[in-house]
Amino acid sequence: MDIIKEFKVKGEYITLSQFLKEESIISSGGQAKWYLQENSVFLNGVKEKRRGKKIRPDDQVKIADETYKFR
């Protein structure tokens, strides 16, 4: 069963690497490239490998069995 979490975007957007760091999925921004190569991350249902991809309110990110809804 998926776990759904809400994430509040401060400002217009957050990059995928910033989000991974804020959620403590990675410990530094430099790990984002490696993490995205080794793990499946989906942005709005599409597999995403770009660490600089902008995530905006109403977007959805799925990592393993966790889904994040952005507000």
Rank of each mutant, 00 (worst) to 15 (best):
V61R: 03
K21Y: 08
K49V: 06
I4C: 05
Q31C: 04
E6V: 11
S40V: 08
F42I: 00
Q60D: 02
R71W: 10
S17C: 13
Y35I: 00
K33R: 09
I3Q: 12
Y13I: 02
I63C: 03
N44E: 07
Y13T: 00
N44R: 06
K69Y: 07
K5I: 09
G30T: 00
D59P: 01
I55K: 01
L20H: 01
V41Q: 00
R56N: 15
I3C: 08
K47V: 07
E23R: 15
S27D: 14
E22K: 15
K49Q: 08
K62P: 01
I63M: 03
M1S: 13
V9T: 01
Q60H: 03
D58V: 07
E48M: 10
M1T: 07
E23T: 12
V46F: 12
A32V: 04
P57W: 14
G52W: 06
D2I: 15
I14S: 04
K5R: 15
D65P: 01
S17E: 14
Q18P: 00
K21M: 12
Q37M: 10
I63W: 01
Q18G: 05
G30H: 07
G29E: 11
E48D: 08
V61S: 04
K62G: 01
E48Q: 11
E66V: 13
M1Q: 11
K21D: 04
G52Y: 09
